[in-house]
């Protein structure tokens, strides 16, 4: 073998090694971060932690029940707003590919996806907090719904566009009206893609903090009134993590762990469900 060829092969091998080393050099520490957070939090979690309210500074113990309930309410409300809205919009975009409205709507969805979450918080503040004269979980849900929307719309649109036209034609040829073609044939056939978009968007907004800072605001007490300020997991983590108290840090670790597990589970579930529900075309 000539020297030149050896040199070229050597160079190639060197690059491959570099790629592997760099990949491991970032993935392994990233993994350690995950493990660290889970470890730091898991020991703090017990029944009291889940069912009690936070104790005032100085008293140890206490739990995050208010944040758990709050997160469920805030995320649930956001989902109720955003999921039907997003799916319907995705249906419009896939059924009217070339209309002017579809062009503008698509552009706006792209814009929405790029808006920093903190800015959406500002907007929700002026749309709901100012007029109602109070921070409220509803305004937080509204902000989160706006963040969910583009994910749901896009996953719905992309899924439906992948379905073959023959499916629509089969349905139309049986004399089915438009809404039944969509709701009984098209959507069921694309359900796995739509659901995975929905679940990922839920996972995504559960961890969002910035839009809640001046909407849901946080609340040391348990409330279920959506017109009142409400605590949520990410807000609690932010507030307690930046506080100087160790007890509160412990609560924040526990909350981080729960939030993390929830997000990871949702992601894993999405993978499984997508595979299981996939309609074989």
């Amino acid at each position: 073998m000539s020297v030149a060829i050896k040199y070229r092969i050597g160079k190639s091998t060197a690059f491959k090694t570099l790629v592997i080393v760099l990949s491991l050099a970032c993935v392994v520490p990233l993994l350690f971060i995950l493990v660290y957070i889970l470890q730091a939090g898991i020991t703090k979690i017990n029944w009291n932690f889940l069912t009690n309210l936070p104790k005032p500074v100085g008293e140890s113990g206490g739990g995050i029940a208010n944040a758990l309930v709050g997160t469920m309410i805030i995320v649930g409300t956001a989902s109720i707003i955003a999921i039907p809205f997003g799916i319907l919009c995705g249906i419009y975009l896939s059924e009217n590919k070339n209309s002017k409205l579809a062009y503008w709507s698509r552009l706006c969805i792209d814009i929405l996806q790029g808006i920093p979450s903190i800015v959406i918080g500002i907007v929700a503040y002026f749309w709901l907090v100012k007029p109602l004269n109070s921070f409220s979980s509803l305004s937080g849900s509204m902000a989160l719904a706006i963040m969910m929307l583009p994910i749901v719309v896009r996953s719905t649109e992309e899924t439906l566009l992948l379905l073959p036209d023959s499916l629509r034609e089969a349905a139309y040829a049986l004399g089915m009206p438009f809404h039944r073609v969509i709701l009984k044939v098209i959507v069921p056939c694309g359900i796995s893609g739509i659901m995975s978009g929905v679940m990922l968007s839920v996972a995504r907004i559960t961890g969002e903090t910035a839009p809640l800072l001046f909407t849901a605001f946080g609340n040391p007490y348990l409330t279920t009134d959506i017109t009142k300020p409400m605590q949520s997991l990410p807000l609690l983590i932010f507030n307690y993590a930046t506080s100087p108290y160790n007890d509160w840090h412990d609560l924040a670790w526990g909350a981080s762990c729960i939030l993390l597990i929830w997000v990871l589970l949702l992601n894993i579930f999405t993978k499984l469900i997508t595979r299981k529900w996939k309609v074989q075309l």
Binding site: E169, A170, A173, G175, M176, L281
Partner: peptide, 21 residues
Amino acid sequence: HPIFVRLKIGMVFQRPNPFPN
């Protein structure tokens, strides 16, 4: 309305297209 028309005139396509779901 197309719905009436298609209820009275059935159609079979070139490629079989059963509903996969």
